[in-house]
Each structure stands twice: as structure tokens, then as C-alpha cells.
Simulated assay, not measured.
Amino acid sequence: MTLQRGMSTGAGQRWYPWVLLSVIVSLLTACSEAASPLEQQQIHPVKLVTLDAGREAGLLRYPGVVLASERSALSFRTGGELAELSVSAGDEVKAGDQVARLDDRDAQSQLDNARSSYELAAATHERMRVSLERGAISRSSYDEARAQFLSARANLSQAEDQLSYTVLRAPFDGVIAQVPVDNYQVVGAQQTIAELQQPGSIDVTFQLPEQQVRQIDEQRTDAVRTSGTEVAWVEFSHGGKRYPAHYRKHDSSVSEGSLSYEVTLTLPEPEDITVLSGMSTTVLLDMQALTQEQKQAWRVPVSALTTRDEQPEQPVVWRYVADDPEDPQSPGRVEAVTVTPGRVTARGILVEGDLAVGDRLIAAGTQALQEDLRVQPWVKEQGL
């Protein structure tokens, strides 16, 4: 029995290390299995922004003003009090339609006097002509009567013209763009009573800063103008529909009181809205199309731009690379893309680099990223 107990004790001593090793392996296995959720937690959620195909990033915005391509400032040749204002802004008129009329009482009185003088001079001239033929008067007397007749006829014609000048008529078919005067107002000669624009096309002008004008390449601009390439768009309301326009010209001299040059665009008159001369607009200009610089610029959030500790002088953005390109929400990794920062706009910063349409960039928290970090697109939950 003693021997058996001894043998049993020795066998237990031999088995104990193996039992202990088995327990340790089991514990390690359990720990390994428990670590999987922790590893999954190392996939960081990130907010992404996608680069689109539009030229929006390269468009510069300027305030502009509408001008009719064919327009006329209508005014009276003589001054006086407005007796009748026949049009308002937006009215369509035909050639010859009355636009406004002055108080014509003085002009009518002058015409009546001129007509009386003319009739008297005409009668005198006729009597003197008959008397001259009969030899009853001298040639000089007849010549004097004839001169008075011609003068009276000229005065009558002038008085008729003065009366006609009291009525302002449209010189061509068009639309009244604006009426800067009020009825019964006393106006002067050549003072604008109404502005008439001819339908068909409109011009839009805006001011381009001097430093940007210096970047314009004349050969490229001529090519754009000749080909009719669309390099600008016009918005007639904030965030409204954009209408393509063609680059027409820019002034060769600086605008008075500023360091900018006036640029003129032209476009067909929109059919779906009413556009009148003097209206304010927003111009979006593809400046790259007019300069020698043709690199693609991308607009990204300012928070997407950062630097790395090992290269603090080189700006980068972080691009998301999905494990499954077919699944936009699949986990993935990040990679740094070196970029050259450009102009800061109200909606981000322009950058140039090895980027492409459809690239998805990390939009926030970029300072904490590192190469090949595991991430997953963050999806906004409903109610958050």
C-alpha cells in the first residue's frame, strides 16, 4: 500500500507540469479570443469628403451688374415738366410707342405764334411777287419780303420740332429696363427718362483685381473667345440657376478710383426669368481657362489639411482606401497624399496634388492619423 501511494504521488508529480501547461494554454487561448473585440475597436470611425468632377473648386466669384447688349438711354432734347409717364420698368414697347410726354403748353404757344408769323409772311411774299411782276415795286423790296417769308418758314419748322420734342417715343422694340424719374418731375435736356433694352442678349460686367488681370494669357483668352468656350457662369439670385456666359473683353485701363479692371461677359437673355439692366448678379469665373496655369485644383475642408511629424514642412491630406472598393462603408486604411495649398475660400481651401475624382479624404481629426491606420467611414445615425 505504501508503495502504491508512493507510486501515485510520483505520477501526480509527473502529471502536474502538463496539467499546469494545459491550463496556461487554455488561458492564453481564452485571452486571445477575448482580444478580438478589442482589435475591432481599433478601427477608428472617420468623417469623409468625396472629391467631385466639377470645376467648382477653380471658380472665382465676383459681384456683377447686368447691362443690355443693345440698350438706349431715352431722354428729351428739351427740358420741362413731365406731364405723362407712360411706362414702368419691365414694360414691353414697340418702336414709336410713347414713353413720356412733357407739358407742351409753352411749345404749343410758340408754334401758334410761329404759324401766324409764317402765314403773314407767306401772304406778304405772294403780294410782293405779283407786284414785282407788274413792276409796281423794286426788286429789293421783293427780296426783303422773300427773306422774311423764308425766316418765318424756318421758325415754324423749328416750333413744330420743339413741340414734337415734348413727346418721347421708343426708337425700337424692346423692354423698359428702368425708369429713374417720377411723373410731374421737372427734367432737363438729355436727362435719362427711361432705359430701353433690346431682347436677345445681355452683358454682365464685373471688376477683376489687377493681380488677377496680370495672370491672364492673351493668346489663351483669344482662343476662348474665338471658340466660344464657356468660362463663366452667371447667377441672378443667390444659389440660383447658373447661366453660361462667354468672355467678351476686359478693359485695358484700370477703373477710376480702384485697382481693378472691368470685365464684360455676354450671354443669351434667359427665357425663364426677367432680367433687366442694372440688376445685380454673381459671376463665377474659371480663371484657369484664361491663364497658363492648367493644374487641377481641388476644394477640401481646411480641417482636411495637415502635416506629419517627420515632414512638418510638407502639407498632406489623408485618403481613405477601402478594403472592399464595392462597399463604400467597408473598413479600410488611410494613406497620406502630399499637396500644395492654394487660395482659401469661404467653403474650404484649394489644393493641388495626386488626387482624382471620387477620392474620399478624411475631413476631420487628421492630426491623429498615421500611415495604414485602420478606419471605417462614420455614418450619421438618425436623430444624432
Rank of each mutant, 00 (worst) to 15 (best):
Y320M: 05
Q158N: 09
A159L: 11
P301N: 09
R14A: 15
L369E: 09
D97G: 03
Q190W: 14
V175T: 13
V25N: 02
L67T: 11
V93P: 01
Q190C: 00
Q13G: 03
G58Y: 01
T307A: 06
R101F: 05
G135L: 09
V93C: 07
A73M: 05
E133A: 14
D143G: 01
V231R: 03
D173M: 06
W15V: 12
V316A: 03
I349H: 02
T345C: 00
A57P: 04
A147D: 10
S303R: 07
R55G: 10
L196R: 01
Q13F: 15
G6H: 11
V283T: 05
Q215I: 04
L384S: 08
M1E: 14
Q190D: 15
V167M: 10
D372W: 08
R115E: 15
L267M: 11
D97L: 05
Q42G: 01
L48P: 02
E133C: 00
V224I: 14
G188Y: 01
E92P: 00
E84H: 09
A35V: 06
V99W: 07
A57I: 08
G365R: 12
H238F: 12
S157V: 12
W298K: 04
Q207H: 03
T229I: 01
P171Y: 15
G342R: 02
D161F: 12
P17L: 12
S75Y: 10
S86F: 02
R139A: 09
R308H: 03
L350I: 12
E293N: 11
R214S: 12
